[in-house]
Nucleic acid binder design. Structure first.
Lengths: 190, 190
DNA sequence: TACGTTTGCCTAGGAGCCCTAGGCAAACGA
DNA sequence: TCGTTTGCCTAGGGCTCCTAGGCAAACGTA
């Protein structure tokens, strides 16, 4: 009757990512995505093998988008400026795209990642950033983990309302960045 | 036929928490809990209003357990020792009880919290801990957020395998604690 | 232009889950 | 001893995931 929507794996995944940002990643459902296209749910299964795969593809998409943002934010900066740009890009992505950001948390083996067409992320802009702080292994790894943990924890608590206090979260954020910079600058050894 | 299992809201919630630790919080299902008791799923609805409420109750239970652990860990300690004990209690709870820990992330209004019988958590042992670092508001709040973010982010990334590097995570953990202590000791102002 | 072939969405249907309504028997209180 | 309450039951509706098989539109080829 009506014209065919012209689905494809990419369009389905994009719609799922959009939906995830709107209603939450774990409320993303094959049926709901199908409804968005005005199509029966069974029709999506020629583009995506299962709900599980759909979610994994959203995760890959989101991880690449995040890496892209962080990558461009870092270009031409170093030291504290780089750190700030990194953190700002990270946080803004998470807040603008809560569903996508949540998707990144699901665990994917490197093989599965490649199967789904995920590109290399250069093992992370994090190490590039930390090079500017003059760390050597294994301190670099420890510092990288510390940095990512703090950023991830911050946006996660912010999203989930874990910061109940009347002081607005954006007011605390710069302090966190200052603390982070200081910690990385004087990373404790021994 | 067989004797009645003798269900109750508390037993159902406890079983759900157990199940969450075993199979993951978002795989907790009314049917599965019912199966565990050898009972039809409809039977649970006299003890728990809905799946949503069941999850909320697990969240309250978990939050109180965590607060209890942290509380006893802090008793009689101060300064860096208190920080270490706090962090260790926090992390060990999250790793031993991944499902419960995950449950805490769900957002509950204070009213809902009270409805479900949640007790006061004294607004947090975090502030008690930070008192030892001589901070004043609003730095205390900022530092508390930083501390919780780092801990939460750390165990979260550790659980989800976000730390891919060959260096084992437990090797990095003490560095993180040292960094945290140093940061809190010299919390940057202005 | 005519005719396979492929593509894209369809209907039908099974299984699992959430949840409501109403029933029946065991346990309890007077 | 006899209501009354309690605790689990069956029945059933609606939504979801996913498979199997069908049909018609679009495409490639002669």
């Amino acid at each position: 009757m009506t014209a065919r929507p012209g689905l494809s794996t990419d369009r389905v995944v994009a719609a799922a990512a959009e939906l995830a940002d709107q209603v939450g990643f774990d409320k993303v459902t094959v049926s709901a995505v199908a409804r968005g296209f005005g199509v029966k749910d069974a029709s999506l299964y020629s583009h995506v093998r299962s709900l599980r795969e759909l979610r994994e593809r959203v995760a890959v998409l989101a991880a690449e988008e995040l890496a892209g943002r962080v990558g461009t934010a870092l270009m031409g900066r170093s030291g504290q400026q780089a750190l700030t740009a990194f953190a700002e890009a990270y946080r803004s992505f998470a807040l603008e795209h809560p569903g996508r950001y949540r998707a990144i948390e699901i665990r994917l083996t490197p093989e599965r990642w490649a199967e789904l067409g995920g590109r290399q992320l250069g093992v992370d802009h994090t190490y590039a950033l930390l090079r500017g702080y003059g760390l050597t292994e294994p301190a670099t790894t420890d510092a990288a983990r510390f940095l990512l943990a703090t950023l991830h924890g911050y946006v996660n608590l912010e999203r989930h309302g874990g910061f109940d206090h009347p002081r607005p979260v954006p007011a605390s954020w710069p302090s966190a960045l200052r603390a982070l910079h200081q910690t990385l600058s004087t990373w404790p050894t021994e």
